[in-house]
Design a protein around this nucleic acid. Structure first.
Lengths: 346, 346
DNA sequence: CTGAAAGCGCTTACAG
DNA sequence: CTGAAAGCGCTTACAG
């Protein structure tokens, strides 16, 4: 490992001068600059990030905390975040936390962040009160995506609007018997997304004078498999809904699977719509409400960069930013008028 | 930020003693031990990882390098790797590299790894010769997953066997007119997986005396959308294949989408099989060949831990490990005898 | 068992 | 413009 001292020796200057010409805050004589650069190149010098961090107090790494990688949303946004951060000169420390936390195991510890990262991007992981307290004590620049933590800047979509767009589409097509997938009972107090979406669903139905059948509002862990299992009995019931709104495309794909297994034709016998615009949505012809995940990732990074520029804790005076991105309805092949309503295409 | 000196002062011992009792390589008097522990707890002391790294020479972070996060395989394996590594006391620095590299942009630089990580897990990213050279110069403990780099331990599945299992299943059902999806022309020299699978496909067909129609062996970028676009004309052709083998489940899902759009019934009119056992495979009833991704992740971590224990570069004497995990056929609802062959279920 | 001291490889005022 | 020196917060022989 070649060190700054090696470069200094070869260039016949002090280490201070090497440090200066490599970072260039101050003026350096062009000729000594040349010598230093040449020496560094010849020795293939790479500064030790750990020594730099210790001396400067900044690590240039940010923690990205996610509840899982296996869901489309998280995989997509982590990709964007990592690239945006790398372009800005930061590295990302990835932490995948089990969610919800197991009773005993403490997922979070001060060691994970303290003096290790310059900032945190918190992706829709719900926190226990102790964890929130710990995060507060760390006083690190932080931004949340998806679910807000009181004091940190947050970027999210308008979940109520997204659900409303989906329901409206269904209502316009003539549906009134609509099932909903994606309530999350136990954690609803902490996670705003599931709660906001189902609330908007109910409101929209009520506003349209359509019935809200509670036995059709289903609790699911947001996986395709669970969605399929939950919707099957409903689809087989009498009466059965003429349409299903899933709070995520992955659950909607589960519904497609269940319909297929039951021999139900989509959209002729039952309409299906999701929320996300998942990678597979287009190829499967799934109607959905699109959210722009890369935009959310970029916004989160830019907010964090701002917060880190202001230093620890940010500016306590200014109001906490809250960015709400719009969503757009994308009608595709899985939604159509209900069998008894429109008598669509022959 | 409380430092080791604060703890030392409060406990009325030297910093050396604090360091010792916190790591406990040497004996420490039980009573002073108590005092130190109490002091550390009272001050909520967390050692600075950057100072520790500088002094000890180990960072306890490993780089995980992936070509993308949006594919099921990578999202799954990164999850497993992160958790296994965290349990072992390591953090992961995630790097998502564009693959293939853009001509000019250098994706890799020594700064990304040098003195920053203790090891590297390299996930199926193909390397240019310069990159391979750089990686070699770094001399960091490294393990590859998916595609081998000459000198590093590698864990992968038996790609030939996986493809063979899929073809055999189709042949046993009576298919002889089989299309294949997942050749990758430009990079075939670097990526063993696509090449191995299509080779095994061809060999199996030849061995069975079935025709290999080159116009049915399709070049696709391994996304569902591209697979759908590529297979559509083939499915509409005359003659058309009675079965399609996709080199990944994501492509198989694309084929399902294409069939749906064409109004072709699966498996009655065309059989579809993939490789992976993707999260959605079961719910969609997709026949596939299962690979155990968590096992690959755990194996990679364990190999890396071994290599890091041996120190830089590992033991040059011992042969480079190569772990090949087995795959298993999972027949589900998308495969059946061909229309003209078996006259399956009424 | 414990402390003093050197050293890890940088950065950053402070002089000059 | 440039160098000497202190300091970042730890670990690790070396003495005792």
């Amino acid at each position: 490992m070649t060190t700054i001292a090696d470069v200094a020796k070869l260039a016949r200057v002090s280490v201070a001068t090497v440090s200066r010409t490599l970072h260039g805050s101050t003026r350096v004589d062009p000729r000594t600059r040349e010598r230093v650069l040449a020496a560094a190149a010849e020795l293939q010098y790479v500064a030790s990030p750990t020594a730099t961090s210790l001396a400067s107090g900044r690590t240039h790494v940010v923690a990205v905390v996610a509840p899982m990688m296996s869901r489309w949303f998280f995989a997509s946004i982590v990709t964007t975040i990592e690239q945006a951060l790398r372009e800005a000169g930061y590295h990302v420390l990835l932490m995948v936390l089990e969610d919800p936390p197991r009773p005993q195991a403490s997922r979070l510890s001060p060691e994970m962040f303290a003096k290790r990262v310059d900032g945190i991007i918190w992706l829709n992981v719900l926190t226990t009160p102790e964890e929130a307290e710990l995060l507060g004590r760390l006083a690190l620049p932080m931004v949340c995506v998806g679910t807000a933590i009181d004091t940190a800047p947050t970027v999210l979509i308008d979940d109520r609007a997204a659900a409303r767009q989906a329901v409206s589409h269904l209502l316009h097509l003539g549906h009134r018997e609509i099932a909903y997938l994606g309530t999350v009972a136990e954690t609803s107090a902490h996670m705003s997304t599931p709660a906001a979406r189902v609330e908007a669903f109910r409101d929209a139905l009520v506003a349209a004078g359509a019935p809200v059948r509670e036995e059709w509002v289903l609790d699911v862990d947001w996986t395709a498999a669970a969605a399929a299992a939950a919707i099957e009995p409903v689809l087989r019931g009498i009466p059965a809904p003429t349409a299903v709104l899933a709070a995520s495309d992955e659950m909607a794909i589960g519904v497609l699977g269940a319909a297929r297994r039951l021999g139900l034709r989509v959209p002729e016998e039952v309409s299906v719509i999701g929320i996300d615009d998942h990678t597979f949505a287009e190829v499967l012809g799934l109607s959905t409400v699109r959210q722009d995940v890369p935009a959310q990732g970029r916004a989160a990074v830019s907010l964090l960069l701002d917060a880190m520029a202001l230093g620890q804790g940010g500016d306590p005076g200014s109001p906490v930013a809250r960015l709400e991105l719009a969503t757009t309805l994308i009608p595709r092949g899985t939604t159509a008028p209900p069998p008894t309503g429109g008598d669509g295409a022959g």
